[in-house]
Computed example of a mutant assay.
Amino acid sequence: MQKTALVTYAHLPREHHHRHVLTSTIDVFGAAHWLLADRAPQPGGDVQPFDAMVVSVHPGGNVELTELSAVRARWPHLDRLPDGGFVVAASRARRDEDGDQVQIFDALGRETLTFSVGDAIEHLLVDESGHIWVGHFDENPIGIRRWSATGRPVWMSDGAGIPGLFDCYALNVSGTTAWACPYTDFPLVEIRPDRTDRPVRVWVNLVRGSRAVAVHGERVAFYGGYGEERDRLAQGELTDTSVEPTAVGLLTLPDGPALGRRLVVGRGSRIYVQAEPFTRWGVFDLSD
């Protein structure tokens, strides 16, 4: 089976390796961000607010540091807003913390707003207009939603005609468009909420269990799967109604070994992958 190696994209600067990586992401403009704390979160009990640091590595290598005060998410999601601020969200929403699940920080690291988007966040990605896309997993099967940065829902998948939307396995946000591949039917879904004529398109897809998707023109790539297919890279072409398979291989780290635990982010034609110890992002670009 053909192997494709990730290309090294961004490194967490070595002087920050002593801190614990809470999470990491790639924003819609291509910058890499790490949310760091002095220690790992402790399981169980209440989360005491703590200070954290975001280390941002921009395309070209420029490094930026932002101190965030009073972060409250034990298992957080992170992304950057176009105005330079950050959104930090707890993946699980506790009933006694309703309205406090999502924290918005300004460019100086000061909390400016909190709100809730619903329990069981699988993916959280900000688009270039500053809207926040959230995909949920099956413990709260409410699908995919797009929120304003002030906590107002602006698009919901309810009634959008997406078949089998029970768990948002894969979500890709590029520009103001989202692509998804949800459980249980795993269709490829394009969402353009600003279009009035056809905001949602759906293609039948036979690739099951993918954790990330990339799209470039009429070409598509799916990464991940069940069991021994966790490192699978399946590629296909779009017809009017379906994804027609063209190739199946494996996606590996830049230096070759199979991937272990990992974070994945889909952005347009790119799939970014980060394996333990979560200090280096690699990229597969479908457009290359």
Rank of each mutant, 00 (worst) to 15 (best):
M1H: 08
T4A: 07
A5M: 06
A5V: 01
V7L: 00
L12D: 11
E15S: 09
H20C: 07
T25P: 08
A31P: 08
L36A: 11
A37P: 13
D38M: 00
Q42S: 11
G45Q: 01
P49M: 05
D51L: 00
A52H: 10
V54Y: 12
V55N: 10
S56I: 03
H58P: 00
G60A: 08
G61R: 02
G61L: 04
G61A: 02
G61Q: 02
V63Y: 01
E64W: 00
L68Y: 04
V71E: 14
W75S: 14
H77S: 00
L78S: 03
P82K: 08
G84I: 00
G85V: 06
V87A: 13
V87L: 03
S91W: 06
R92G: 10
A93E: 15
D98C: 03
G99W: 00
D100F: 02
Q103A: 12
F105W: 10
A107Q: 00
L108P: 00
T114W: 07
F115V: 06
F115P: 11
G118M: 05
D119F: 08
D119Y: 02
A120F: 10
A120Q: 12
E122Q: 15
H123V: 02
H123E: 02
L124I: 09
E128N: 08
G130E: 12
G130A: 12
G130K: 12
G130S: 13
I132C: 01
W133Q: 03
E139Q: 11
P141Y: 07
I144L: 14
S148H: 07
T150H: 11
R152I: 11
V154N: 07
V154L: 12
W155E: 12
M156E: 13
P163G: 14
G164W: 15
L165F: 04
L165D: 01
F166M: 14
F166S: 15
F166K: 13
D167E: 15
D167I: 08
A170G: 14
V173H: 06
G175T: 03
T176M: 10
T176N: 11
A178P: 01
W179E: 14
W179L: 09
A180H: 00
C181E: 14
C181W: 13
P182E: 06
Y183Q: 13
L188Y: 09
E190Q: 05
R192T: 01
R195D: 14
R195L: 08
D197T: 15
D197P: 03
D197H: 08
R198P: 00
P199F: 02
W203H: 08
R208F: 05
S210K: 09
A212S: 15
V213K: 11
V213A: 14
A214N: 02
V215S: 03
H216K: 09
V220Q: 10
V220T: 06
Y226C: 11
E228Y: 06
R230C: 01
R232W: 00
R232S: 05
L233D: 12
L233N: 10
Q235H: 06
S242G: 01
E244L: 01
G249W: 05
G249L: 04
L250F: 03
T252R: 02
T252K: 04
D255E: 15
L259K: 05
G260F: 03
R261N: 12
R262I: 01
G268V: 02
I271N: 14
V273R: 12
A275W: 03
A275D: 14
F278R: 06
V283N: 08
V283G: 13
L286R: 06
